[in-house]
Simulated scan of single mutants.
Amino acid sequence: MLPWKRVLRPLAALILTAAVATVPAAAAHAADTGPSWGSPRSSEAESGGGWNDFSCKPSADHPRPVVLVHGTLGNSVDNWLSLAPYLKDRGYCVFSLDYGQLTGVPIFYGLGPIDKSAGQLSAFVDKVLAATGAAKADLVGHSQGGMMPRYYLKFLGGAAKVNALVGLAPDNHGATLSGLTDLLPYFPGAADLIKATTPGLADQMPGSDFLTKLNAGGDTVPGVHYTVISTKYDEVATPWQSQYLSGSDVHNVLLQDLCSLDLSEHVAIGLFDRIAFHEVANALDPAHATATTCASAFS
């Protein structure tokens, strides 16, 4: 391994951890009764990029709307400034939502209880289907956004309304932050504080009650096509192999098998990696899929 890679990966994980550490302080600014879990913004984010257009009608070539589900500390705009236009330019009706808001914590979402976030996703999908007239939607999620929808599919009736779930670096079996979560027992009260103030983070820790329930009885549900796109340089959902799903209708993909030069880590895979985006497009329209290679970065 090159020396700079040894430095950058732990550094990136440390930066992410530091960002997470600021959230409890912000949450403490909320009501004295404790944290409350917000509902989606009254008017969905105006991206300025042409998505979240509820007058959009799916075409015959792309008959299902695509709902983008942001990751932890993300939101409906920032997470999708590259992928949403990429899909819209290819003829899709594209939508994105905010979920998992904490009162008093703006912009950084995906921090509330994940089962409640799945309920927000359910309501948003219903809204999209009603507006577009489509029978089913496709979901594309980054990080928690690739894992959380599985709760919707499994427990909230989502399987009847969703054709495919595509996860970009989804923490399907937990996020260890390159092993940093293993250090929590050495800091008495730290785990309890995280659970009390940012339950969405606690739910993503390996072995949590939420993940135990989510993965009991199998990773998938019948009738939904699953794709997982991972990078071996991931420093959040580690080990990266834990992102993979098991099931009869699952396609697990490692970016470096498609392009060995791709150095994207956990954040980049969702924000601007067009090689990953090309594989997302293949998953959404497998009948017209084309080979994903390093050249896909320029397509």
Rank of each mutant, 00 (worst) to 15 (best):
F277N: 13
L177M: 14
G141H: 03
V253P: 00
G104H: 15
Y226K: 11
D209Y: 04
N215G: 06
L83N: 11
C294A: 08
K127E: 02
L2Y: 06
D219Y: 13
L263H: 10
T197S: 13
G207C: 09
A164H: 11
L16P: 00
D89S: 14
V69D: 00
V280D: 08
M147I: 06
K213N: 09
V67H: 03
G48N: 12
P149K: 12
F95D: 01
Q204H: 01
P185Q: 08
R64F: 12
A21W: 12
C93A: 02
A297T: 03
A164M: 06
T292S: 14
H142C: 11
A28F: 13
K116I: 03
A19K: 04
A84S: 14
S208G: 10
S122E: 15
G174A: 05
K195H: 13
A289F: 06
L261F: 07
G145Y: 07
N79A: 15
V128P: 02
T132C: 00
Y109E: 13
T227P: 13
S230D: 10
S242M: 09
C294T: 13
P113I: 08
C56D: 09
L258P: 03
I194S: 07
A283Y: 00
L168E: 07
H29M: 13
V105I: 14
T33K: 12
R9W: 08
L8N: 07
K116L: 12
G200V: 02
I269D: 01
A25P: 02
A295I: 04
A27Q: 15
Q120M: 14
A18F: 12
L14G: 11
A123S: 14
L139T: 01
S117W: 01
Y226S: 11
L168S: 08
H251Q: 14
R150N: 02
L102W: 13
G104F: 12
L97C: 07
V162S: 03
Y233V: 04
P85R: 04
G146K: 06
D78T: 15
L121A: 02
Q101T: 13
A123M: 09
N172L: 03
F210E: 07
A84E: 01
T132K: 01
I107W: 09
V221I: 12
W37I: 09
Y186W: 10
S122F: 02
A283M: 05
S82W: 03
A45N: 04
P58E: 08
I15V: 15
S242W: 08
L16N: 02
E44M: 05
A276R: 05
G133L: 03
S96C: 04
F210Q: 06
K136A: 03
Y92A: 07
T292Y: 00
G48K: 11
G174I: 06
H70F: 04
L11E: 01
G112Y: 02
L11W: 13
E44T: 13
K116S: 14
Y226G: 10
A202C: 06
Q256T: 10
A291S: 15
I269H: 00
K195T: 09
T293Q: 09
